[in-house]
Design a protein around this nucleic acid. Structure first.
Length: 461
RNA sequence: GUCCCCUUCGUCUAGUGGUUAGGACACCUGGUUUUCAUCCAGGCAACAGGAGUUCGACUCUCCUAGGGGACGCCA
């Protein structure tokens, strides 16, 4: 029990829940769960300028939508400020941190000069040996070791080694007294007894700094696993110009949470040739699978495919209740249910249901002109007129009987199904694409069908 | 610029010294279907390049190129 795996996801609430962040979180969570461990959510809200409560809420909502349940309460980094400060004091006391009064002007100048010389910009350690005391404009810097290197065995990347002279004396406390990111992360991870840090590989460069702080604090660093980032469809860094980047945007697009989750996990993780995993399977198989170590490009098409798979699995009633909450035209009644069952296998996104069902819930206003030109002529109108009479007197309004009526007319005139099927489809739906026309007619109901045929005859005569 | 990470079909990936390099999405062809979609069958398509190591390299090493990331009193 002592060795229970504890991981965390630590977003800063400065924007929407990013799709890449969601995937990283999923990995961290799955890693913990597949080891019977715990995973926590920690909001890194120390940037007061940009942190917003609504962003925190959006993050929490996003995870609850995806059914990723973190253990314990949500942690807020800002709640832990005292501990951060105490840790820094400990470092100062043990001579592993010092006050620095270099101005940002000097720092800027230093940086540009170093860059010009082709060097890596970093603090030159000017105040390191000065023994300054705290002042109104001082910051606290960490005395990073100057010799040797930091090595760690990354769960996904393998051994990574970074020389200490690549690292500079980073700021631990700003001149306004607030602690900085790298310090907070270390203190919080210690505080929460985090054993495994699973995060994006954009943090690889922070890792040796954080390890040095852990060691200076005489603590043991956790195990790290850096998962590669997600790229846009074009292989470039994922950004707004690629379209939707927020989890909520996919929610609005009509992506099912299970589908998004499955897709996101498969993006960079694999378990042989298997594509579809349910929630339980993900947990049980995650650690047996393989995390890829190269970045992967996001593909909305593949996501759609996953979504289609999930749509085909969910129960109609459940689907209907979701749809009726979505302003889709559907409501929880018999009619909507039969529409849904008729069109469900034509839809890959939830939003497709609105498009595919339009003529079930609205009058047909326009007819597809291309289809009209091709299939509507005098003969078609005559056939429709005949069919109309037939349907008015049909005994039972069932697809089978409707089909019989159609066939009867067809054989009388010795023409193929298309001669009347297509015009009928145009009359009922406005276009030539729809589910089988007899079933469509059945669901639409006798009254509507007769009205629409009648209207079409008038329009096309 | 400096440092770090990465490189198998267009995309997601399997592969861990000897394979006809497999699967999925997309695409193409054919079949089923009253249309479209579904579904079924088939097809196209990849080891970034160059040196090594080895009897033998997609698999190991090095170099090059390309991509990504980090270099803040942001997180």
């Amino acid at each position: 029990m002592e060795n229970k795996v504890k991981s965390r996801f630590a977003p800063s609430p400065t924007g929407v829940l990013h799709i890449g962040g969601a995937r990283t979180a999923l990995f961290a969570w799955l890693f913990a769960k597949s080891h019977q461990g715990e995973c926590f959510l920690r909001i890194e809200d120390t940037d007061l300028e940009r942190s917003k409560p609504e962003h925190t809420q959006a993050i929490i909502d996003g995870f609850s939508w995806m059914d990723i349940q973190f253990d314990d309460e949500v942690f807020y980094q800002s709640d832990n400020k005292e501990k951060h400060l105490t840790a820094v004091q400990q470092l100062i006391d043990s001579n592993q941190a010092y006050f620095c009064n270099c101005s940002s002007e000097r720092l800027d100048k230093l940086r540009t000069e170093q860059q010009k010389e082709g060097l890596k910009p970093k603090y030159d350690g000017k105040c390191r040996e000065l023994g300054l005391i705290e002042g109104s404009d001082t910051v606290v810097r960490f005395s990073n070791p100057q010799e040797g290197s930091v090595q760690f065995d990354d769960l996904v990347k393998g051994v990574i080694e970074i020389s200490n002279n690549e690292l500079d004396d980073l700021i631990l406390i700003r001149s306004n007294g607030s602690p900085t990111y790298n310090l907070c992360v270390v203190v919080d991870d210690m505080e929460m007894s985090i054993t495994h840090v699973i995060r994006g590989d954009d943090h690889i460069n922070n890792t040796p700094r954080q390890i040095n702080i852990f060691r200076a604090l005489q603590a043991k660093e956790p195990v790290y696993g850096h998962v590669p980032m997600i790229l846009g469809e074009d292989g470039k860094r994922l950004s707004k110009r690629h379209g939707a980047v927020g989890v909520s945007e996919y929610q609005q697009l009509g992506v099912l949470p299970e589908a998004l989750k499955n897709y996101l996990v498969r993006l960079g993780w694999s378990y042989g040739d298997q594509e579809l995993f349910d929630h339980e399977e993900l947990i049980s198989k995650f650690k047996e699978g393989n995390i890829n170590n190269s970045p992967s490009a996001f593909s909305i098409e593949k996501l759609s495919w996953f979504n289609k798979e999930y749509i085909s699995k969910v129960d109609s009633e459940l689907l209907l209740s979701q749809l009726s909450n979505m302003n889709s035209g559907f409501s929880e009644d018999e009619y909507s249910l039969s529409v849904l069952e008729l069109i469900r296998d034509r839809c890959s996104l939830m939003n497709d249901f609105s498009k595919e069902s339009e003529y079930f819930f609205n009058e047909v206003e326009d007819y597809d002109s291309k289809a009209v030109n091709k299939f509507i002529n005098e003969q078609a109108v005559n056939l429709l007129t005949e069919l109309l009479e037939e349907l008015k007197n049909i005994a039972s309004w069932k697809s089978h009987d409707i089909q019989l009526s159609i066939e009867q007319i067809l054989s009388k005139h010795e023409v193929g199904f298309g001669k009347i099927g297509l015009p009928l489809r145009i009359a009922l739906t406005g276009s030539t694409n729809s589910p089988s026309i007899d079933k469509t007619a059945e669901v639409l109901g006798r009254k509507v069908v007769i009205e629409r045929i009648d209207k079409a005859i008038k329009v096309f005569s």
